[in-house]
């Protein structure tokens, strides 16, 4: 953790040496993530409901999913660059330092510009809270930070799984985009929009449904299309812990594999 913090701090200073680039890239991040919202806005310019959900509700899904991805990306998104370090051999430099490799990889090229996505999606979330007509009982209030943290952990776990995968196939880094950014696009929309088998897949196989769908459906007082028992609405932290556990095991196995094959 200590190692992570000061390496991240170094990278922040490093990127801030090019102030103009930093500002531009942060803005670009903000706009890039905002494009997804433009899609939703244009859709709602043509319709009042999508899959039975109103704009405020979709914005709520968009915001919760986006903030979770933004936080996970900020914290451990750098790990997806491990493939490059494996290819050019510079992972070895990290392995001879007295700081856990994971901390170094996660803080590698720590990019503060990722605050762009966080800012944009955070604003969308705040706006949706204004728009929503929700009876804010205590369980619903608690569910909000509850789901943001769990969602962050689930996306973080997926980032780490993707990084571990790169030890095995360094060129196939793009696969994880399907799960991180793809998962983000998916969970911006209500589950009712998607085919039931797809929803089953992202509930039981790649548990993206627990990033925000399950808890958000409780907040929005909507039925869940799979009809899962009520505790599923609150199960996100358990799922997040499981994803992170699997990711940790995969990461350890990947590093161990690298150290025995040196590939």
């Amino acid at each position: 953790m200590r190692g992570y913090l000061f390496i991240a701090a170094m990278w922040m200073r490093s990127t801030l040496t090019y102030r103009t680039s930093f500002v531009l890239l942060t803005l670009a991040q903000l706009v890039t993530s905002g494009l997804d919202f433009v899609v939703i806005a244009v859709m709602f310019a043509h319709t009042d409901t999508l899959g039975g959900f109103e704009l405020g509700e979709v914005a709520f899904l968009y915001g919760t999913s986006g903030v979770a991805l933004g936080l996970a990306d900020l914290l451990v998104g750098s790990a997806q660059q491990v493939g490059r370090r494996i290819r050019d051999g510079s992972l070895d430099v990290l392995l001879v330092r007295p700081v856990p490799v994971f901390a170094q990889v996660a803080a590698d090229r720590f990019a503060l510009r990722r605050l762009g996505r966080l800012t944009q999606t955070g604003a969308a979330l705040a706006w949706s809270l204004v728009l929503l007509d929700v009876d804010w009982t205590w369980d619903r209030v608690l569910l909000l930070p509850w789901m943001l943290l769990s969602g962050t952990a689930i996306f973080a776990g997926i980032y780490v799984l993707g990084a571990a995968f790169q030890f095995w196939a360094a060129d196939a880094a793009e696969v994880q985009n399907a799960f991180t950014h793809g998962g983000n696009t998916l969970t911006q929309f209500p589950p009712h929009v998607f085919a039931r088998d797809l929803v089953r897949g992202v509930t039981f196989v790649v548990p993206l449904a627990f990033v925000n769908w399950m808890p958000a459906l409780h907040v929005l007082d909507r039925p869940d299309p799979l009809g899962l028992p009520a505790f599923a609405d609150f199960a996100s932290p358990v799922v997040a812990a499981a994803v992170c556990g699997v990711a940790a095991l995969a990461w350890r196995a990947a590093v161990r594999g690298y150290r025995s094959t040196g590939s």
Partner: peptide, 13 residues
């Protein structure tokens, strides 16, 4: 994967 996701949102729209 993206095609799959986006196609469903278009279907809804």
């Amino acid at each position: 994967v993206f095609g799959l996701i986006v196609a469903h949102t278009y279907l809804a729209l």
